[in-house]
């Protein structure tokens, strides 16, 4: 294809996105679009899978049968999200094995928040309320992103995430209205998860490398700082309502901006965790790699059995 032809295709492609048309798997797309989408969708899928671990940590210790069942169902939803996000990603011409390899080798990233430990039952509430809350803010705009398979997966993901968020907040309400020990547990969880949740919305706009291109492709509708502000404005009143204190001495309502002013985020901590040196990076990766490696004989057996069955069938026919 000549350079002119490619330019023409690119112009048509950008025009389609500008008209809000969906790009489908078989459509022509610029290589950069494909690569950016593989990166983002797989990062999202990996986050769902790694995200199962900190919550899975509390399944065996959940305090009641009702909570145990709800937690199991929630984690199962996350596995389901991982599954259809991987499928969406595969439509871009990459296999699940390649995607796992990228995760296990450390080449692909996942949401850093899951590198923090879950230390008490209240962390199950805080994760649902704050982490899923921040995730929804990130993800709702993606329901109308330009790549069709991703947009459709996100519609389902978002519905389930908002259920999880309510479930998490409900755990916090119960604790906040409970005994002094329970209230203390809830406050401690908020203290530990608040700042990492703000970091989840990404580096500040001046440090964010992908924003401009992502905006054009509708992979992003608002900047990181706008999303963060939205999260804070939405969450602070929820904390107030149940009598918990957001651990930020600089947090203050700004009448003029009709928004909260907030304190400085510790970006050194953020980059430390992103670069692999958070409290649980090694444990999380180790758990995934172990599950994958120890599962190899199981997957091989399934494959071998399927092949043998197929060849027996062929023999019968012959």
């Amino acid at each position: 294809m000549s350079e002119d032809q490619i330019k023409k295709l690119e112009a048509e492609f950008e025009a389609r996105i500008a008209r809000d048309e969906k790009i489908e798997a078989k459509d022509w797309m610029p290589e950069k679009y494909r690569k950016t989408h593989i990166r983002q969708i797989s990062q999202h899928a990996h986050s769902e899978i790694i995200g199962m671990l900190p919550e899975g940590n509390w399944i065996t210790r959940a305090p009641s049968l009702r909570r145990k069942v709800a937690l199991l169902a929630k984690i199962q939803d996350e596995a389901g999200h991982g599954l259809y996000l991987y499928s969406a990603c595969e439509t871009l011409g990459i296999s699940r094995e390649e995607l796992y390899d990228q995760l296990h080798s450390g080449k692909a990233k996942y949401s850093s928040i899951f590198n923090y430990p879950t230390l008490t039952w209240a962390d199950m509430g805080a994760i649902g309320w704050l982490v899923d809350g921040a995730a929804i803010i990130n993800q709702v705009p993606l329901c109308s992103t330009s790549y069709g398979p991703y947009a459709r997966a996100m519609i389902r993901v978002c519905k389930e995430e908002s259920f999880h968020q309510r479930q998490g907040y409900e755990i916090m309400i119960k604790l906040a209205n409970g005994t002094p020990e329970q209230k203390e547990m809830a406050q401690d969880a908020l203290n530990r998860w608040w700042w990492p949740s703000l970091m989840m919305l990404g580096p500040t706009d001046d440090k964010s490398v992908h924003t401009e291109q992502s905006m054009k492709w509708k992979l992003k509708r608002k900047t990181n700082d706008e999303l963060r502000q939205q999260f804070i404005d939405q969450t602070v009143p929820q904390a107030d309502l149940i009598g918990l204190t957001v651990p930020d001495p600089d947090l203050k309502w700004n009448e003029e901006r009709q928004s909260y002013d907030f304190g400085e985020i510790d970006w050194d901590e953020f980059w430390q965790v992103v670069k692999g040196h958070g409290p649980c990076n090694k444990e999380r990766m180790n758990a995934r790699v172990t599950a994958w490696e120890e599962g190899e004989w199981v997957r091989d057996a399934a494959m071998a059995h399927a092949e043998k069955k197929e060849s027996r069938k062929v023999k019968e026919v012959v």
Binding site: I59, Q76, G80, L83
Partner: peptide, 20 residues
């Protein structure tokens, strides 16, 4: 329930959680 997140494949993981 102990297995959740540690299965040999994502599909098996989901199925075992379902049984649980």
């Amino acid at each position: 329930g102990e297995l959740c997140g540690h299965g040999p494949s994502l599909e098996i993981d989901i199925a075992c959680t379902n049984i649980s």
